[in-house]
Nucleic acid binder design. Structure first.
Lengths: 203, 203, 203, 203
DNA sequence: CACTAAGCGAGACGGTACGTCCCGTCTTTCC
DNA sequence: GGAAAGACGGGACGTACCGTCTCGCTTAGTG
C-alpha cells in the first residue's frame, strides 16, 4: 500500500513516537472525499488538514505533495488489479475482464484514475508511482494470461503481446479521459471483437 | 485560429483602437516557450506577461485562463490535421498517416498535446475546446477515409468505425502519456498490423 | 513621518500605480489599536491585515516587520517633541517640561514608547530608527535649552550637559519600564529638585 | 537560585526519582550560550533542548517559558548584588560601587540584563521575577547604605532616597539600553558628581 | 489637425494557498 | 518512573500568484 508515504531515515532508530495509523486513515479519507466532491484543482492541503482535523505539518511529514496523497488514497480504496476469471471459453474470459475494468472506470475509482493519470503528466514522481503501482502489475498479469493463450493455441503466436495490451486497453483510457463514448459493455465488445478479428476484409 | 480569444463586446463598435496583433503573437510565443521550458505547472500569467513584455491586463483581456492561452499557442503552431496521403495501397496510406501522427507526437507538439490533454481533465472548457478543435476534426477526417475504405472493399463492412479509430489511435495517446514505449515506426506497425489482422489464431 | 516606509527604488519611475495613502492610514490605525489592546507579543501581521481589511502583501510591501509598523504608527500619533514653554523662571520651565513628558508617558503614548523601546533591544534597525526619530531630536532640543541656561547663568558652567539630560530623564524611562512608582508630578519634582540641588549635605 | 523552577506537586512526595541537577545545569548553560550568540529572538526551546541534549518535555517540566529559563540562567551566573565596599570616604564608596555596576553592565551579564529587562516589558511574570530577584534586593541594599549616609551626616536629610537611587542608577540602565555612551568610569563620575553636587549655579 | 477614447505597461490591491518554523502537549520506548 | 525522542494540533510566518483595479502614457481613428 502506501509506499509513497515518506519514511525519512529508518523509522524509530531509538526512542521517539510512532506515527498514528488512524491519523493516516483520516487524512486519506478526507482527501478522497474532497477530490470527488470538488476535483483535484480545488483540493488544498489546508482543506484536507481542516477536514481531517489535523495539522498541516502532519500531512507534510508523510507526503511530499497533494498528488502523492491522492495516490495513496486511491490505492487505499482499490484492490491491486482486476483478475481474469474463468468463463465459458478462454477468449470469453478476456472480454469479461475488460468489462470489469470498464465498470471500475465508470465509477468513482475511474474518476480517481483519470485525475491521477492526468496529474502524473505534470509530476514525474507521481507518474513513476502510478506506473509502478497501477500500470505495471496489471500489464504483467495480462501478459501472463495472454502468453498462456498463445501456448494453448487461442492467440496468434506471432503477435507482440505488449501491442495487444495497448490495443485492448488504450481505448478504455482514452474514453475515460475523452468521454466521447460511455464505457458501456457494447463499446467494450466492439473494441474487443475488432481487436480479435481484425478490421481487414477477408477474401 | 484563436477562437478562444475573448471578444468581450463586439470589437470596435465605434471608434476606439483595435488590438495589436503583434502583441498577441508575442504572448503566444512567450507562453509556448515557457510551457516547453518549464512545464505547465510552473507557468504563470505573471511569467508570460513578463517575458512578453506585456501587462497582465492585456492577457486577461484576451484569454480567461492560462489553459486557453496554451491552447491558442498550440493551434498557432500546428496545422489543422494530419492528412492521409496516397500510397502504394489504400491500406498502406493509413499506416503512413499513423506514422506521421507518431512523428508529431515525438516532437514538441507532442509535448503540447500531452500537456493540454492532461490539463483538460481538470478544466471542462479546455476539454471542450480541445475536443472541438483537435479531436473532432481529426476523427471526422479519419471517419471519411475509412468509410471510403469500406466502400472500396478494403475494410470489413460490419465494423464500427469509431471503435476502429479508437483501436488505431488510442495506443498513440496512451504511449504519449505513459511513455512505456517510444512511438517508433516499429511500434506503429505492430499496432497497425494487429488491429488490421486481429489477434486470434485462424484455424 | 513614516520614513520607515519602504520605498524600494525611486517610486514611480515611469508608469505604475501610486500607493494609496488611505490604505497606509488604515494599517497604522489597526496596528495601534491591536498593540494597545493585546500587546506587542500578540500582534501579528495577519491580525493587522485582517482588521485593516488589507492583504498581507500590502503590508509587506511597505514595512519590513511589525516593529517598523508600530514605529510608524507611533510617529503618526505623537508630535516631534515636547517643547520647553516659558514659565515664571527659566528653571521652572524645565520642571514644567518634565511634567509634560511624564504626562505623555502616563498615557497610551507611554505604552507605545515602552513597547517600542523594549522591542528595539532585539532589533538594531528599530533601535536606530527610534534613536534618530525620537531620542536625538529631543536631546538636541534639551541640549540647546540647557546651553542657554548656562549662558544666562542659571546652570553651573562646568557641567556635562549630556549627563545632565540623562540625570533628569533616565528616571522617567526607568519608571516607565519598571513601574515601581507612578510618574506623578510629585515624583517628577523629587527627581528635578534632587538633580538641581544635589544630594550632598552642604556644610 | 532557580526560584523560577517549576515544582509542580511537592517534589518527590513518595518514591519516584529525583530530578537530575546536572541536566538543569546543561540546560541553563545551553540557554546562556544561545542567548549570547544569537540573541533572545532567535532562541527557541527546540534549540536549547537540542544543544543541551535533552527532550523538550524535560524543559517544560521545569520552566514555563523561555524567559524564565534565561532568568534562571542569568542568576546562575551573577551574584546576588554588588556590595558597597569601604573606601577612603563614605561618599567615595558609592562612586566605587557605581563603577562596579557599570563594569558588570559592560560585560556579558550586561547583555543579559538588557535582554531580560526588555523581554520583561512583554511578560508580566518575567517582570515580577526580575523585580523581586534583581531590582528589589539591590535597591534595598542601596537604601540601607544611603540611610546610613543620612544618619552619619553625609547626605541631605530631606532627600527622598528612592528618587536618589533613580537619579544615580537610572542613567546606567538607560545607557545600557540606548548605547549613546559607553558606560565608562568617566561617564559614571559625571553622573555621580552632578547628582551629588546638583546642576544649579550657586550664588 | 487636433481631439479623444481605447490600448497598453506597470504595478497596487484583497485574497488564497503554499511550505516552514516553532509552540506547548501528548505518547512511546528505553534505561 | 524519569527522560530522550519525536508525533501531533495549531498558528504565524513570508512568498508566489491569482484576478481586479487604477494610473499615465501612447496611439489610432474620427470629426
Amino acid at each position: 500500500m502506501d509506499q509513497n508515504t515518506r519514511q525519512p531515515e529508518s523509522a524509530a532508530v531509538k526512542g521517539g513516537r510512532p506515527r498514528n495509523p488512524r491519523t493516516q486513515q483520516r487524512i486519506l479519507k478526507a482527501a478522497t472525499e474532497l477530490v470527488l466532491e470538488q476535483g483535484f484543482k480545488a483540493l488544498s492541503i489546508d482543506a484536507i488538514a481542516g477536514r481531517a482535523g489535523v495539522g498541516r505539518m502532519t500531512i507534510y511529514r508523510r507526503w511530499p505533495n497533494k498528488a502523492a496523497i491522492v495516490m495513496d488514497a486511491f490505492f487505499d480504496r482499490v484492490g491491486p488489479s482486476t483478475p481474469f476469471r474463468p468463463a465459458e471459453t478462454y477468449i470469453e474470459s478476456i472480454r469479461q475482464q475488460m468489462r470489469a475494468v470498464a465498470k471500475v472506470f465508470r465509477g468513482k475509482d475511474g474518476t480517481l484514475v483519470r485525475t491521477i493519470f492526468a496529474e502524473a503528466q505534470f509530476d514525474p514522481e507521481l507518474a513513476s508511482a502510478f506506473r509502478e503501482k497501477w500500470v505495471i502489475p496489471r500489464r504483467k498479469m495480462a501478459l501472463a494470461y495472454f502468453e498462456e493463450g498463445i501456448k494453448k493455441g487461442f492467440l496468434r503466436p506471432d503477435i507482440d503481446l505488449n501491442s495487444m495490451i495497448d490495443l485492448l486497453y488504450a481505448p478504455l483510457y482514452l474514453q475515460l479521459q475523452m468521454g466521447l463514448t460511455t464505457l458501456s459493455d457494447a463499446y467494450i465488445d466492439n473494441i474487443f471483437d475488432h481487436a480479435m478479428e481484425g478490421c481487414l476484409k477477408r477474401t
